[in-house]
Structures are given as structure tokens and as C-alpha cells.
Design a binder for these strands. Structure first.
Length: 949
RNA sequence: GCUCUGGUGGUGGAAUGGUAGACACGAGGGACUUAAAAUCCCUUGCCCGCAAGGGCGUGUGGGUUCAAGUCCCACCCGGAGUACCA
């Protein structure tokens, strides 16, 4: 029988589907099996369909899921769709086609493509973020976030109702909670306030809150964007300019969890680089908050710690406080109006308005340009009592720390540039060597490193930098003018989007107060709209919806015409961002059809969290942060059982495109020169050519002539009768004609070949260009593998049993360390050796089928049945490795795969190679397993000997 | 700039500190065939040599070690993340 993949693959796919082979239950079944949860980052179903880069991670996780199952685990391996998103909406604006229709169509296409590759997903658990049954729980979680605040003493989220009780009894006294701004009020004040005033105060503490905040506004997309959706002042999607704008927006107080998000990284099994990406993004820095008193009109100190007498700065270098020669406020700083002296007023106001109107992009592009202005006011260094000028400059950011800094030009490069520009003094206070100083006037750059010793620094002079830091903070704390503190770079996540195609907020506005709709009324379904564009008045698309008001009497959605502000109120017009639906989907997979709860206690108790998560590192500062935050919140609520959602994480590398080029002669427009014949690249024009008409870099010239009209008359200068194309690694994209569609490869070689080849290409984690050149090799292997099984059952030779056991060992090791490319190689070696040995023994071949099953499930299933087995190979047992089988006369020695053995012998220090060989042969140990001469003995002085047998 | 990665044949890539280049592609040669496809066998890091054999080789320069692609230090080059975060 021939290996007929196109016949057998669909047949087994049908068998798996109809037999529910991949259906998973929450529980170990009759005998209690261990559980394992393997998850892929679910895809956004784009109109372009899958290209070969997408399935890479899915194949890797599928191999692992199948492997775990064969090892006796109950494996949860679900798949779904991140179905809300901009492209479907943009398409809707252009064509009027409802995004739900587009999305549905794209999902069907994705599903069809995925099914052809033979994944072991349990499709009964599929989720879609745009499904009301699903987003009900996204909305529900939002309501919980709204109804909780973060208590820094309890170090967890607590119900907002307990905060209300607390305020009624004690006011804000003693409260340590995450908030937008610090507030101080008494119980009496609280009790005297009306509903609207209390609502305002509570909003200051809620984990989902509404506030006027500077946002990234993208006019082109007509929406605000989160920080991770903006790169270099441009939107990630579309690359449109983004400006800073103050808007009333929903935000998630993710900063409350900043410390726990940092700490949690210690517990998870992720790559160092991804952990580092997250640490950088969270940006924890330790330092000190210090109050600098202001000098008043009479030149006297206002030596008290209040907002009009002093201002607070944050520094990570308290040790350099003796080197402060000026202060800088950000242009948004509230103190500016108050302290600026009359003679500087005009200048300062002009600067501030210039700085505020500068677009984010301009600001970022001109980072190196120094700008700023003197306020005429002075602060006082609390340790030296020196008078220090106060400047305003936009190199100080409003959003970080307190928006004010102490400038130490000698030891901070930005302060250095500023001081040089304005001719301000530079004073050295840190030196690499004790007591040695140089003249800062001669420096070309500041000395920023946190090493060396303090100099010119009063009581800390002579101390090491680290000691000086501690000593200065101690002193400041003792003086009551500052304290040790930690700052984070992480900002709260802006949660509103002025879009249509997203989860509606379960929020209505009762006379301006944001209220959530009752939980039992969820989901609040996305309404129909006449248009997907913003309204004429600039409202988000939901402003077009007729039926978009909340009736508190009937608890239902009614027409906006009924709004009376007594019982019927307007609903929120923004929708939630893309990361809302993807932040908790892994929990929903545990119990996806539950309409009473997000997921049942029983389900989460069983699965706990994701054991293995596979996906791209590009989500490092987005989804992976938000999901961890979401999970920690649910953990605080007692719902999630593990604080970290994803125990182990593998980042599959990006698959880049490999473009092919033809070289058109500049002298003759119809002449194309084969790569090897091009002598001077300046004489030809490289032109992208569709990789689908190129095979192993050889152009199909006939197809090329037909490809596009301008190539119809093409003539070729061939080498050895072939036209060889050039190639380059680029992004995979339509415009480069280098997109490889997996369906074509499945049709040509079969799913098993595609699966093996994607793994064979290189380590899963590594970025690599797609290149079909080697696919024949793995296809040949499958044919050879197939052939092995076509003979009659015979008795197994010792040699073939040895090959089997070496293979079991190596494959098991390779899978455990996610080295799937070497695993595929191992199979090839194994098949070659068994072919040479003419092995056709069932004893060897049957376990081998099980080893191959995770990688090439279709062929494995077919051969499993050819060998006369019942049921699916998915339920077989992983073969046991027996080291005894590797040595003929069973001896316990460490045996390595390539036949290398290593052991130690005592030899004299001056022993030679020949002595070593003699010693090996004479050794009673080796006599048991060494038959004849060893092929090679590698000997080095001391006692280690490698023997190749 | 800072942080993290990586640098091995013509190509993709193998190597718990222990034979560098497994495996595969490509290339060259051969067998089978009227021919082609398919299949199989041999060669294939570089240099010298008919050969046996020898020399050189993992970005560069140092170091640790009996032994370094692997560990340490410095530098060069690529990729990613971040970017006035005090």
C-alpha cells in the first residue's frame, strides 16, 4: 500500500470528530488522572486567513498536549476566537457590512484551515469574545472591578461597600488605598455629603473608574488607545498620529497591582527576556520622595510641608542631593502659576502653552533638543540650605513621580544637557575613587553610574554610593521632610474605546453619576446602529443606536427617546478595548457553557491555572500584563485559585517571509538574468516574484510569463537550463508576494508533513524565515516511515530493540524540553536505521507509532489500526524506556544516544593515550559491555575517559 | 542611550564543559530506467596531498580549565523591547 495522505487524513479527522476523541471532562474519570492545561493564544480571525506562521505555535502546543495525554494526563486543550477588533469595524465603515457578519465569515474560514491540520482541540469548549454568552462575563468582571478598591494594608482588592462603611465611621483617616488623588476628610464630612459627592469620592478609589485623564487620542481611528497600542507617537494599527488629550475615560487601576505584578514574575516559568520586558514596562524604581521648601517673597523660608510652601520631588539618587544646582517642574505643574515671579510671567506662560500644544510625536522626535524657562522663583535645599533656581521644562513628565525633580547635572545626563544649555553650575558629588575629584567644566558627559564614593557631600562624603543613599534617606526621614518610596512607570489602563465593535459597558448615567446595571440583567447586548462611524456631534458610534437607554424601573434597554432622567437614563456610548475579552478567556474555557457563573468553583478547583501557554512575545506589554492583572483581581475575589494565570510560557518566534527575486536587466526590459550570472547588481533591477511559482529558488518561467501581463514577453538568461532566483528575509506580506498559505502545503504534502516541517524548521522560540526548500525531506521521511510498516511481522533483532529504546529516550527528552526540531531529526535517524536493519517487527514498530503520534497524528492513527489495534492511538500508552535494552549483557552505565560512553578510571598523572586504551580493556567494568576494540578512546590526563563504541 | 537576545558550512540548523557541523535541504557523482518521475548508494567545512595523512576552523581579542561553540572579561555586528520614567 502506498502512503496516500490525501485519502487517510480527512478520514481520520472525521473519525476524531465523530468519535468525540478530543472531548475533555472536568475530572479525571474513573481512575483519577493528573490534569494538564495547554493553551494557545487565541487568534483574531482576520480576513486574510491563516498563513504558515500562525499554526507554528498551535502545532507545538498540540504536540505537547498529545504527548501529555499519552502519558496519562487529562489534558485541556481548547481553542476560540478573539473576535472583537478594529479590522472588521474598518471594513464595516467602508462597506456597510456588519462586523458580526464579517467576523462570522472569517471564523468559518479559520476553522476550516485549522481543521485541515489535525489539531486535538476540544471544540466543544470554543469561546468567542463577541458572543453575548461570553461577554456577559467580561461585563460582569468589569462590574466587580467597579465595585472594588485596592487596600494597600490588606494588599488585596476589597468591596467598595466596606469602604463606604469605613468612611461613615472614620472618614479617610488611616486609609491606605490605591487612588487617583490623595483625599482627606472626616466621617462627619462624608455623612454630610449627598449621593453625587460621595459617588465622586468613591470613583477616586474604584478599580474600574472614570476620570479626566490625558489619553492617547488617535483622530484617524476616532478612538483613544492604551499605551501599549502606541509606539513612537503612532498607532500600532494603521500607524496614524496620536496626540495627548484630556478626556473623561474609563480606566482600570492596574497600577494598584504593580508590585504584585513584579513579584509574580518570580513564580512563573517564563523566559528571562519576557520577564524583563514586563519588568521594564512596569518600571519599578526605588528612591525617595523629598519636600523642597520654597523661598517666599521676602526671601524667607516657608519651612512647612504644605502645597503652597514646599513641593515634593521623587529621586532615585538621594545620595546626590548635595549636588543639586536647580529644580525643574513639568509644564503642567500646578505650582507654576503660583511661584512664577512677575518679571518672568510672560516668558513662562508662553513656554507652557507652547509645550502643551506640542504633539506627542513632535515631543518625542525632538527629545535631544533642550528647552525650558526660569520661573524667577527659588527653592531651598533642605540639607545645605542653599538657594536653588526653579525652572520649567518638558523633559520632566507630568505623569511620573510628582512631575518635579531635583536636578543634579553632574550625575544625570538630561540634567547635564540642561545645565550646559542654560549655563547652570555643575557640581561633582560622586567620584569613582575616594576623595578624587575633577573639574566638571571639563566633562563631556555626566557620570550617571551608581558606583563609587560620595564627595563634596557633607556628612555622607567618603561613603560608597549605596551607603550614602541609605544615609541621606535616613536623615530626610528623621527631619520629617521625606521618605523612602517606590515609583512605577506603569500607568493605569485606559478602558474606553470610541468604537462600535466591542463589549458595551454595563453602565448608565443617572444625572451624571455612573451606575452599573444589575448583574442579573447581563449581558447588556450590543445594539444595532444605523452607521458605524462616529456621530455628527463626535459621539462614538453607539450614539447612533436608537435603543440605547436604561429603564431602571423595568431593568431593561429602551429607546433613547424615553430618557427622562427620572427612571430612564442614557447608557455609556464607549465600548471596551480588545484586551477586555482576552483577559480572562483561559478561565472561561474551564467551564464555557455555564450561564450561572463565569466558571464553576469545581471547574477551577480541578484545572487551577494554565500549565503551558504558547504564543507570541509581542503580547508582553499588553495582553500578558492585563491577563495577569485580571487574574490577580479574580484571585483576590477568591475565584481564581492561583495568583498567576500562566505557569509556563513559551514564545513562538515570528515566522518571517522569504521573498524571491528575479533580476531584470536595466538595458533590456524583457531580459531576466539568473542570479548566478548577475555580475554587477547595479545593472539589474530586483523584482519580487511570487514564491508560489518558485520551487527551491528555481523559477517556473512559463508560470512567470503568465503571472502578470508585463512579463509576457520575458526572456531569460539561464544557468544550466534553470533560472535561479535571489532571496531575502522580509516580513511576510502580500505586497512582497511571500505569503505561504498552509492549505496549499496540506494539499500537496499532507497535514502530517506540514506539522513535521514547521517543527523541523528550527527551535519553536526562535524567529526564522519560512522556507519551503526542505519540506521534501520530511515528506520523504513519512514515506519511508510508512514503508517500514508494510512488511510481515518478524522477531525483533537486538539491534532494532536498541534503536527503539534510544528513540524513546531521546524523543521523551526532546519533548520535555520543547526541542521539537531535534525530535523530528531523531525520528529520521530511527527510520533510517530500522530500514537498514530491515526491521518489520511489531514489537518495535508498535511503540514507535505512539512516539510519532503527537507529531504526525494522521499517519500514526492509520498505522495503529493497520497493526490491528482498536480505538484511537490518542488513548495508547507512552512507551517505557528501558536502559537495560541498550546494552546486550545488561550493565549499568550511562549510555548516550550517539554511542558515546564516559566513565572514570584512576590513572597516573603521566599516563599516555596508549596506557588509557590498555586500562580500558583491562578494566573489569568495561569487559562486561565492550566487545572487541573500542572505535576510539579519548583520553585526557586525570581520570576521565570517553569511549566510542 | 538602556535592557534582553543571538552570531557555527552554500542554506535551515545539531552539540549535559568532553569526536564541532547530528539531521535535513542544496550541490556533485553513480545505480535502476528506452526516458522521465520515484527510489537507492557514494562524496560534500576550508587548505595541502594521488593517497595514507597533516594543517586550520564556531564574529574579534584576552582569560579560566587536562579540555571551551558552550564559562568569565572587553570589543564588533545583527534582532527584539523600551525610550526624556528623574
Amino acid at each position: 500500500m502506498e502512503y496516500n495522505f490525501s485519502e487517510l487524513e480527512p478520514r481520520w479527522q472525521k473519525y476524531w470528530k465523530e468519535g468525540g476523541v478530543y472531548h475533555v471532562e472536568n475530572g479525571g474519570g474513573a481512575k483519577e488522572r493528573p490534569h494538564f492545561y495547554v493553551l494557545d493564544m487565541f487568534p483574531y480571525p482576520s480576513g486574510a486567513g491563516l498563513h504558515v506562521g500562525h499554526p507554528l505555535g498551535y502545532i507545538a502546543s498540540d504536540i505537547f498536549a498529545r504527548y501529555k495525554r499519552l502519558r496519562g494526563y487529562n489534558v485541556l486543550h481548547p481553542m476560540g476566537y478573539d473576535a472583537y477588533g478594529l479590522p472588521a469595524e474598518q471594513y464595516a465603515i467602508q462597506t456597510g457590512q456588519h462586523p458580526a457578519v464579517t467576523t462570522e465569515k472569517n471564523i468559518a474560514r479559520y476553522r476550516e484551515q485549522l481543521d485541515k491540520i489535525g489539531f486535538s482541540f476540544d471544540w466543544d469548549r470554543e469561546v468567542r469574545t463577541c458572543d453575548p454568552k461570553y461577554y456577559k462575563w467580561t461585563q460582569w468582571t468589569f462590574i466587580q472591578l467597579f465595585k472594588h478598591y485596592y487596600d494597600n494594608d490588606a494588599n488585596k482588592a476589597l468591596p467598595i461597600s466596606s469602604l463606604e462603611e469605613r468612611f461613615a465611621q472614620r472618614g479617610s483617616e488611616g486609609l491606605h488605598a490605591a487612588c487617583t488623588e490623595e483625599m482627606a476628610f472626616t466621617a462627619a464630612e462624608w455623612n454630610g455629603w449627598d449621593e453625587s459627592q460621595r459617588a465622586k469620592v468613591l470613583m477616586n478609589y474604584r478599580l474600574a473608574y472614570l476620570a479626566d485623564i490625558p489619553v492617547n487620542w488617535c483622530a484617524e481611528l476616532g478612538t483613544v488607545l492604551a499605551n501599549d497600542e502606541v509606539v513612537g507617537g503612532l498607532s500600532v494599527r494603521g500607524g496614524y498620529p496620536v496626540e495627548r488629550k484630556l478626556m473623561r475615560q474609563w480606566s482600570l487601576r492596574i497600577t494598584a497591582y504593580a508590585q504584585r505584578l513584579v513579584d509574580g514574575l518570580e513564580q512563573v516559568d517564563w523566559t528571562d527576556s519576557l520577564k524583563e520586558i514586563q519588568r521594564n514596562w512596569i518600571g519599578r524604581s526605588e528612591g525617595a520622595a523629598v519636600w523642597f521648601p520654597l523661598e517666599n517673597e521676602n526671601g524667607e523660608l516657608k519651612n512647612e510641608k504644605s502645597a503652597d510652601a514646599a513641593f515634593e520631588i521623587f529621586t532615585t539618587r538621594p545620595d546626590t542631593i548635595f549636588g543639586v544646582t536647580f529644580m525643574v517642574l513639568c509644564p503642567e505643574h500646578e505650582l507654576i502659576g503660583q511661584i512664577t515671579t512677575p518679571d518672568h510671567k510672560a516668558e513662562v506662560e508662553e513656554y507652557v502653552s507652547w509645550a502643551k500644544n506640542r504633539s506627542e510625536r513632535e515631543r518625542q522626535a525632538e527629545v535631544k533638543k533642550v528647552s525650558g524657562v526660569f520661573t524667577g522663583a527659588y527653592a531651598v535645599n533642605p540639607l545645605t540650605e542653599e538657594k536653588i533656581p526653579i525652572y520649567v521644562s518638558d523633559y520632566v513628565l507630568a505623569g511620573y513621580g510628582t512631575g518635579a525633580i531635583m536636578a543634579v547635572p553632574a550625575h544625570d545626563s538630561r540634567d547635564f544637557a540642561f545645565a550646559r544649555h542654560f549655563g547652570l553650575p555643575i557640581r561633582q558629588v560622586v567620584s569613582l575613587e575616594k576623595d578624587a575629584t575633577s573639574d566638571p567644566a571639563t566633562w563631556t558627559e555626566s557620570m550617571d553610574a551608581k558606583t563609587g564614593y560620595s564627595v563634596n557631600s557633607g556628612f555622607v562624603s567618603g561613603m560608597k554610593v549605596k551607603e550614602a543613599m541609605a544615609a541621606v534617606i535616613d536623615k530626610i526621614e528623621e527631619m520629617g521632610i521625606g521618605h523612602r518610596t517606590v515609583n512605577f512607570r506603569l500607568r493605569d489602563a485606559i478602558f474606553s474605546r470610541q468604537r462600535y465593535w466591542g463589549e458595551p459597558f454595563p453602565v448608565y448615567y443617572k444625572n451624571g453619576i455612573a451606575c452599573t446595571i444589575p448583574e442579573e440583567c447581563l449581558p447588556l447586548e450590543l445594539p444595532e446602529v444605523s452607521e458605524f462611524k462616529p456621530t455628527a456631534t463626535g459621539e462614538p458610534p453607539l450614539g447612533h443606536a436608537e435603543k440605547w437607554a436604561w429603564d431602571t424601573k423595568t431593568n431593561s434597554v429602551v429607546n433613547v427617546s424615553n430618557i427622562d432622567n427620572k427612571t430612564v437614563f442614557p447608557l455609556e456610548l464607549s465600548t471596551m478595548p480588545g484586551f477586555a475579552g482576552s483577559s480572562g478567556y483561559y478561565l472561561r474555557y474551564m467551564d464555557p457553557r455555564n450561564d450561572k457563573e463565569y466558571f464553576s468553583e469545581q471547574a477551577v478547583d480541578y484545572w487551577q491555572n494554565v500549565d503551558l501557554y504558547v504564543g507570541g512575545a509581542e503580547h508582553g506589554t499588553g495582553h500578558l500584563i492585563y491577563a495577569r492583572f485580571w487574574n490577580k483581581f479574580l484571585f483576590d475575589m477568591g475565584m481564581a485559585k492561583k495568583e498567576e494565570p500562566f505557569q509556563k510560557l513559551i514564545n513562538q518566534g515570528m515566522i518571517q517571509g522569504r521573498s524571491n527575486f528575479v533580476y531584470r536587466s536595466k538595458r533590456d526590459n524583457n531580459l531576466y538574468i539568473s542570479k548566478g550570472l548577475v555580475k554587477d547588481m547595479d545593472e539589474v533591477t530586483p523584482i519580487h516574484v511570487d514564491i508560489n511559482i518558485v520551487d527551491n529558488d528555481v523559477l517556473d518561467v512559463e508560470k512567470f510569463r503568465e503571472w502578470r501581463p508585463e512579463f509576457k514577453e520575458a526572456r531569460f538568461e539561464m544557468e544550466d537550463g534553470k533560472y535561479v532566483c535571489g532571496w531575502e528575509v522580509e516580513k511576510m506580506s502580500k505586497s512582497m508576494y511571500n505569503v505561504q498559505n498552509p492549505d496549499d502545503l496540506v494539499a500537496r504534502y499532507g497535514a502530517d508533513t506540514l506539522r513535521l516541517y514547521e517543527m523541523f524548521l528550527g527551535p519553536v522560540e526562535q524567529a526564522k524565515p519560512w522556507d519551503t526548500n526542505g519540506i521534501e525531506g520530511v515528506h520523504r521521511f513519512l514515506k519511508k516511515f510508512w514503508k517500514l510498516y508494510q512488511g510481515e511481522n518478524t522477531e525483533a533483532s537486538k539491534e532494532s530493540v536498541k534503536v527503539l529504546h534510544l528513540t524513546i529516550k531521546k524523543i521523551t527528552d526532546d519533548i520535555e524540553r520543547f526541542s521539537f526540531n531535534t525530535a523530528v531529526s531523531t525520528f529520521m535517524i530511527c527510520a533510517n536505521q530500522l530500514t537498514d536493519l530491515k526491521c518489520s517487527s511489531r514489537e518495535v514498530l508498535e511503540p514507535l507509532v505512539v512516539l510519532v503520534a503527537p507529531f504526525a497524528p494522521h499517519i500514526a492513527e492509520e498505522l495503529w489500526h493497520q497493526l490491528g489495534n482498536e480505538g484511537s492511538v490518542c488513548d495508547a500508552e507512552w512507551p517505557k524506556f528501558d536502559p537495560q535494552m541498550l546494552v546486550e549483557d545488561t550493565v549499568k552505565y550511562p549510555v548516550q544516544f550517539n554511542g558515546k560512553m564516559r566513565f572514570m578510571l584512576e590513572l597516573p598523572a603521566d599516563a599516555t593515550q596508549a596506557d588509557a586504551l590498555e586500562a580500558v580493556k583491562a578494566s573489569p567494568e568495561s569487559a562486561k559491555w565492550l566487545t572487541g576494540e573500542p572505535r576510539k578512546v579519548i583520553f585526557v590526563p586525570k581520570k576521565i575517559i570517553n569511549i566510542v563504541v
